[in-house]
C-alpha cells in the first residue's frame, strides 16, 4: 500500500517539476540561439571585471605575518583620507598597539580623534578627545546625516570590509585603483549607458558606477615618513588594503600560527592511533593458513 502511494507521490512530484521544465524550455526556445540570455545583456554584465587583480600581502597564506610598517602606513591613509567619510567602529584605539605603536603613541593618536561624550556639568551631548579604550568614531552623528552628506549613499563601515567582499583586500585595492573614464568600447556597444551624476565609473564595481568619488587621486596625497616607500596611488591603495585586512581579522596571524602546532600534534596523535588500531586488530588475523 505504501509503495503504491509512494509511486503515485513520486510521479506527482516528478511530473510537476518536468512540467515546470517544459514550460521553462518553451519560454527559452525562441532565444535558444543565445542560450540562457532572456534579455539584452546589460553593460555591467559585460564590462564589470569580476576578478580583482591579485594582491600579495605579507599576511597572506598559512605562514603569513603582519608587515607592521605597511599596516602603519595603511592606518595613516585611513586616518588622513578614508576617515573623512568611513567609520571603523569595531576597532578600538588600544588595538593599534598591535601595529607596533607604544602606549604613549596610541594615547596621542586617540586624543587626535573627537569622540561623542557628555558634558559632565550640563549632561548635553558633546565631544571629547578620544582615549585608548574608545573606538574609532563615525564621521557622522547618525545614518541620516551620513546619507544627507553623500547623495543618499551611506559610506559603509570599514572594520570588516576585507571580509565582507569577495576577494577581500584585493577587491579593496582594485576599487581604489579601478577608476577611470568609460572605455570607448562600452560607449559604442551601449550608447545608452550613462554613469549617474552622483556616480563614478569603476570597472571593479558591480554596477560600474560607484557613489564614492576617487579617494586617492594624487601621488603624495599622504606623506609617508622617511625611509618608507614613495606614496604612489598604487602604494597607498596596497597599504590601506593591508590595513583593512588587519582590521577585519586582527587575529589572522595568531590563527595560522596556532594552527600549525595543533595540526602537528593531531598528526602525531593520529599516527599513534593508527598504530594502536593495527595492533589491536592484529589479534584478529588468523594465521592458521601460514602455520598449517
Amino acid at each position: 500500500m505504501i509503495r503504491i502511494f509512494g509511486i503515485l507521490a513520486g510521479l506527482f512530484f516528478s511530473l510537476s517539476v518536468l512540467w515546470a521544465f517544459i514550460s521553462g524550455a518553451i519560454a527559452v526556445a525562441p532565444v535558444l540561439g543565445e542560450y540562457g540570455q532572456f534579455t539584452e545583456p546589460m553593460a555591467d554584465k559585460v564590462f564589470h571585471e569580476k576578478h580583482p587583480p591579485a594582491l600579495h600581502l605579507q599576511s597572506d597564506g598559512p605562514f603569513g605575518t603582519w608587515d607592521l610598517a605597511q599596516l602603519q602606513r595603511g592606518f595613516q591613509v585611513y586616518k588622513e583620507v578614508c576617515a573623512a567619510c568611513h567609520s571603523l567602529k569595531f576597532v578600538a584605539f588600544r588595538d593599534l598597539e598591535e601595529l607596533g605603536y607604544d602606549k604613549g603613541q596610541v594615547k596621542t593618536i586617540a586624543a587626535g580623534f573627537q569622540v561623542p561624550g557628555v558634558d559632565p556639568n550640563t549632561g548635553e551631548a558633546t565631544t571629547r578627545p578620544g582615549m585608548p579604550t574608545d573606538y574609532f568614531p563615525s564621521p557622522y552623528p547618525n545614518e541620516i546625516a551620513a546619507k544627507a552628506a553623500n547623495n543618499n549613499a551611506v559610506p559603509p563601515d570599514l572594520s570588516l570590509m576585507a571580509k565582507a567582499r569577495h576577494g577581500g583586500p584585493a577587491y579593496i585595492h582594485a576599487i581604489l585603483t579601478g577608476y577611470g573614464p568609460e572605455p570607448e568600447a562600452l560607449k559604442q556597444q551601449f550608447p545608452d549607458f550613462k554613469v549617474p551624476s552622483t556616480g563614478h565609473y569603476n570597472k571593479y564595481f558591480p554596477s560600474l558606477a560607484i557613489a564614492m568619488p576617487p579617494p586617492l587621486t594624487a601621488e603624495g596625497q599622504v606623506s609617508y615618513a622617511e625611509g618608507q616607500p614613495k606614496p604612489t596611488i598604487e602604494q597607498m591603495s596596497t597599504d590601506v588594503s593591508a590595513f583593512l585586512e588587519w582590521t577585519a581579522e586582527p587575529k589572522k596571524v595568531k590563527r595560522t600560527q596556532t594552527g600549525w602546532p595543533v595540526l602537528g600534534f593531531l598528526l602525531f596523535a593520529t599516527i599513534l592511533a593508527y598504530l594502536a588500531k593495527k595492533q589491536v586488530w592484529a589479534a584478529l588475523k588468523p594465521k592458521k593458513k601460514h602455520t598449517a
Binding site: 600534534f265 602525531f268 596523535a269 599513534l272 592511533a273 598504530l275 594502536a276 595492533q279 589491536v280
Partner: peptide
C-alpha cells in the same frame, strides 16, 4: 603503543 595513543588523546 596503546598507552601512548591513549596518553596522546588525553593530552
Amino acid at each position: 603503543i596503546n598507552v601512548a595513543a591513549v596518553a596522546a588523546a588525553g593530552t
